[in-house]
Each structure stands twice: as C-alpha cells, then as structure tokens.
Amino acid sequence: MGLLDGKVAIITGAGGGIGRAHALLFAREGAKVVVNDVGGARDGSGEDAGAANLVAEEITKAGGQAVAHTESVTEASGAQSLVRTAVEAFGRVDVLVNNAGILRDKTFLKMDEAMWDSVIAVHLKGTFLVSQAFAKQAVSQGEGGRIVNTTSVSGMQGNFGQANYAAAKAGIYGLTRTMSIELQKQRITVNALAPIAKTRMTEDLPMFQGVETMTPEHISPAALFLASDLCADRTGYVLAVAGARMYAFKVIETAGRFKEGDGGVWSAQEIAEHWDAIVKA
C-alpha cells in the first residue's frame, strides 16, 4: 500500500531533475500524476512538449497513471488549465507540488528587467497562480489538500549573482507562510522545500563539480512526506535537503532590548550603542 494511494498529484516542472524524481516517486506510492512542464531551456527559452510526455509515459509503462500538461504556469489560463486537466483525467485534486523554475543569473548591477521579470514570473507568480487554482478546487471538494512549494537557500540567505532568483524564492517563503495561515481552516497544509541538488539547472556550478551525493532522489522523499498523511497537520514549514542532510529554515526574532525613558523612542546613537544586544539571538 502506497502513501499516496488514491490521491491525485499535480507537479509542475516535472519534465526533468527534481520534478521528475517527485513524479516517479509519487506514482510508485500510488498517486495519479499530472506532469506539467513546458520543456524549455534552463533560462526559460523555447518549448518542448516531449519532456512532460516522456515522464508521463515512463510512469504509465511502469504501471502507474499519469497525464502530461505543457502549458506555462506564468499565465492564469495555464494554471487553470492544469487543474482542469487533473479533474478531467482523474476526477479531483489532492496534492500540488510547485517545482517549476528557471535561472537567469547575473550580478545585480548587470541584471536587466527581462531577466528579473522572467524569473519572478515562473517561480513566484507561477506558484501563486497554480496554488490559487488548486486551492479553489480543493475547497470545492471539501476534503482538504496539500501544497508543497519550492523555495531555496538563495531565497532564505541570499546568493551572489541571483538577485532575481533569490527575491522570487524569498517571496515563495512569504507566500507559503501566508497561505498556511489562510488555508488551515480549509484543511489544506502548505509547506515548502529548499532543495540543494545537482540537476540540469545547477550541474555547472562549482559546488557540484565531481559531486554525486546530492541528487534529485535525495529531495523527493521530503516532498513525499509533506504530500502524505504522515505530515498530519504540520503547515508553514520550510524543509531543506542537501544530500543526506535534512534540516529546517526558520525566521527568528531576537529578544531585542527595550528603551527606557524618553517615551521609548530610540535615538540613532543609542541604536549604535546597543546594537549587539538588539541583534543577539
């Protein structure tokens, strides 16, 4: 018996890399999978329906159930079509994994508007649009659901040359937190993954040269956990995976320091004087 028996899962960006690993594992665990991918290059250019179709065929040949969807998640029509495809093929939706993404790296001073807009559109806008379409369908079904977003270490900590990507992924963190609060009463859990893995998008980065221990297959069990009943009512978390290491990201609030006297109004000089106490965790 699989952890996702009878469930219908939508996975965006599932034509390769981490998304493909998610799709294959979810199918092995009994899910009926909608494989979404436009099949573009790493920078988002071009389209190739073959990527999504190949993964769907791989699942069906192994005895599972899957259909492909190749419209972009950057437009409301594509997001709505994606959810509609799931309902028409399998009758319902239960799980959404927002995994679609592109990279257009450039240092902040050299980044142009098109680089910014394209990355924000796929990662952040796409996550919003598909999640909203999915959640509306899940609410109408009245049986809850699970959303797994994909943020990044870059979004949580920043990274050189990735102002657009880091901003999008940080936005996904904030979106995840807000969705987890708003959708809790609808029994829809919303969590996020922050994966580090060697894929087509990252294989040429220095940190992955000669590394074979940070694969997409290391990431997918965490997605499976968050998508399954094992997750219970846990919501609003960011689970990070880097090879064999699994940990969580949390935004912390320091104890801070209270201003005495002067109506509680700090002066700039006093902030400088008490800086260490203010920021100490």
Rank of each mutant, 00 (worst) to 15 (best):
I10A: 02
Y247K: 14
N36T: 07
A138G: 07
T254E: 15
R42N: 11
A138L: 05
M207E: 13
N159R: 08
I10E: 02
V265W: 11
H22A: 03
G39D: 06
H123K: 04
A138W: 00
L224M: 10
F249V: 13
H274K: 11
I172N: 01
F128V: 08
V153T: 12
G30C: 15
T150K: 02
V279I: 08
V33I: 14
V279N: 08
F134N: 02
G15M: 00
T12C: 05
E260S: 11
G158V: 04
G2L: 10
G63D: 04
G256W: 05
P221Q: 05
K259G: 07
V130H: 00
T127K: 12
H218F: 09
L4D: 07
F225A: 09
L193V: 01
F128Y: 10
K7L: 14
H123V: 06
R42E: 10
I147K: 03
G174K: 11
V55Y: 08
A167D: 04
S180W: 02
R42S: 07
L175C: 06
A138F: 01
G30Y: 09
Q184C: 12
R146M: 04
V265Y: 12
G44L: 00
V73Y: 01
A223F: 12
A240M: 11
V279S: 11
G171E: 14
N191A: 02
R104L: 03
Q209S: 08
G6V: 07
M207Y: 15
M115R: 06
D204E: 13
G171K: 05
G17Q: 01
S45H: 06
Y237M: 15
S118C: 07
V119Q: 00
G155T: 01
F225M: 12
G171S: 04
G236K: 12
H22M: 07
G144S: 12
T178I: 14
T74D: 00
L230F: 12
D37A: 00
G63V: 03
L129I: 12
G40Q: 04
E75G: 09
G155N: 02
W266C: 07
N98Q: 06
P216N: 01
A56R: 06
A14G: 05
G64S: 15
T60P: 09
A49K: 15
L175V: 02
L230E: 07
M115W: 09
S131T: 05
Q65I: 07
Y247W: 09
P195T: 00
N159F: 14
V148W: 12
V238A: 04
A168W: 00
W275F: 06
Q184H: 09
A268Q: 09
M207I: 07
V251N: 15
L4I: 10
A133W: 05
R92T: 10
A68S: 12
A222T: 05
P195M: 03
A133Y: 12
A49N: 08
T107P: 15
G17Y: 05
Q80W: 13
A277W: 09
Q65L: 08
F258I: 07
V35W: 13
D105P: 03
V95S: 03
W266D: 08
A62Q: 08
C231P: 13
A121K: 07
F160I: 11
T70N: 02
A23I: 01
